[in-house]
Computed example of a mutant assay.
Amino acid sequence: MQILNCIIRGELDGILVPVPQYPLYSATISLLGGSLVPYYLEETANWGLDIVNLRQSVAQARSQGITVRAMVIINPGNPTGQCLSEANLKEVLQFCYQNNLVLLGDEVYQQNIYQDERPFISARKVLMDMGGNISKELQLVSFHTVSKGYWGECGQRGGYFEMTNIPPKTAEEIYKVTCTSHSPNVPGQIFVRLMVNPPKPGDISYERFVRESKGILESLRRRAQIVTDGFNSCRNVICNFTEGAMYSFPQIRLPPKAIEAAKNAGKVPDVFYCLKLLEATGISTVPGSGFGQKEGVFHLRTTILPAEEDMPAIMASFKKFNDDFMKQYEDYGGYLRM
């Protein structure tokens, strides 16, 4: 909020935000009186960024008189759970440099990675490795926190932002604004210090720290696989593997009769589905419409945080509900899972 407050001057200032997106961004941009400029992640490309789509989004915003001033990336993704590739990050950095945009790198799930093929790479590292004028001139603000990931799991609050290539006088003013918050919580400060300066070999707590951290992440990796496999075993459900973060974001291919039933009930189709799921199983999920999605495409977001031993039963309960739901509403001339 502090950084967006510095960037947004009025309703004609636009911020590029990924869709699906963490709703904090749309809410904050609206609160500050700016304009959200959406760019769509490509689900079929494992929620990667399409530079062509980015260019189209900027061009459309400019045609409406909007000055696009910054771009947000969420890496690993929320709610989508993907990790951006190094090649994708280079494209984004070049795009921001060419269009004079500040890049806001939301990297709060960087320690929660569940595969080896696409590790987390920070935007700042890629920028510094690129060298040349871009590494000295592109303005980047990187965000990290203990509130997410395996450190705090939303139970602890503390974080930071790091400014790269921000003019010294501007950074000084931002620091002044930040210092007007006189009541930072002490546990949060302790957690942040531990996150940026964890136990090192030889420290009395190092072996226990490594053992516990490894155990948590290995369990989350197994849970991510259980959830992904569970969703993909269901009729009319497609789910990319959760590469990072804490979430799974499956696409639910709702039959026309279900969409019609939702309309008759006065509900958005994915809200209708999630409410039926909650009523039947007690499983609470968030409709994809809460994060933004392409017209006529429906999702839900769920976490991979329940206890590992409970996950198979949870996914079995979901599968039973989904099978019953599809039998009730499916038009056999419509969607069929092949």
Score class of each variant (00 low, 15 high):
123 A>P: 05
121 I>G: 06
129 D>H: 02
115 Q>Y: 12
128 M>Y: 04
121 I>V: 14
119 P>D: 09
144 H>G: 13
154 C>E: 14
116 D>F: 13
119 P>S: 14
143 F>M: 00
144 H>Y: 14
149 G>L: 07
121 I>S: 13
142 S>A: 14
115 Q>L: 15
150 Y>F: 14
121 I>T: 15
148 K>T: 04
123 A>F: 13
120 F>K: 11
125 K>G: 02
122 S>L: 12
115 Q>S: 11
158 G>R: 09
116 D>A: 14
149 G>T: 10
121 I>P: 01
131 G>L: 02
124 R>F: 12
138 L>T: 03
138 L>H: 06
141 V>S: 01
120 F>P: 04
157 R>C: 09
135 S>D: 02
128 M>P: 03
130 M>W: 05
141 V>R: 01
119 P>F: 15
149 G>F: 03
151 W>N: 04
117 E>H: 13
139 Q>C: 09
137 E>F: 07
140 L>Y: 08
112 N>I: 04
143 F>R: 00
126 V>T: 10
114 Y>N: 10
144 H>A: 14
134 I>C: 02
145 T>L: 01
144 H>K: 10
140 L>S: 01
116 D>N: 15
145 T>M: 01
124 R>W: 13
139 Q>M: 12
131 G>V: 03
146 V>R: 02
143 F>T: 00
123 A>Y: 08
136 K>W: 01
118 R>Y: 10
125 K>H: 11
151 W>H: 05
157 R>Q: 07
156 Q>P: 00
155 G>C: 09
143 F>W: 02
122 S>C: 10
146 V>G: 00
116 D>W: 12
148 K>Y: 09
156 Q>R: 12
115 Q>F: 11
136 K>I: 00
137 E>Y: 09
119 P>I: 08
137 E>N: 13
136 K>S: 06
140 L>G: 03
124 R>E: 15
127 L>R: 11
129 D>T: 03
139 Q>R: 15
151 W>S: 05
121 I>H: 15
123 A>E: 10
135 S>E: 02
159 G>F: 10
127 L>M: 12
152 G>N: 10
148 K>G: 00
147 S>A: 10
121 I>Q: 13
136 K>C: 01
143 F>H: 02
130 M>T: 05
128 M>T: 14
132 G>W: 03
135 S>N: 07
149 G>D: 07
117 E>Y: 09
153 E>K: 12
124 R>G: 07
118 R>E: 07
127 L>E: 04
151 W>E: 07
129 D>W: 04
145 T>Q: 03
150 Y>S: 05
156 Q>Y: 09
159 G>Q: 04
146 V>N: 02
143 F>G: 00
150 Y>P: 00
154 C>T: 13
124 R>M: 07
130 M>V: 06
142 S>Y: 03
128 M>L: 15
117 E>K: 14
113 I>P: 02
115 Q>P: 05
137 E>S: 15
132 G>Y: 06
141 V>Y: 05
133 N>T: 12
133 N>Y: 04
121 I>M: 15
131 G>S: 04
133 N>G: 10
159 G>H: 06
139 Q>I: 00
139 Q>E: 07
159 G>A: 04
113 I>A: 04
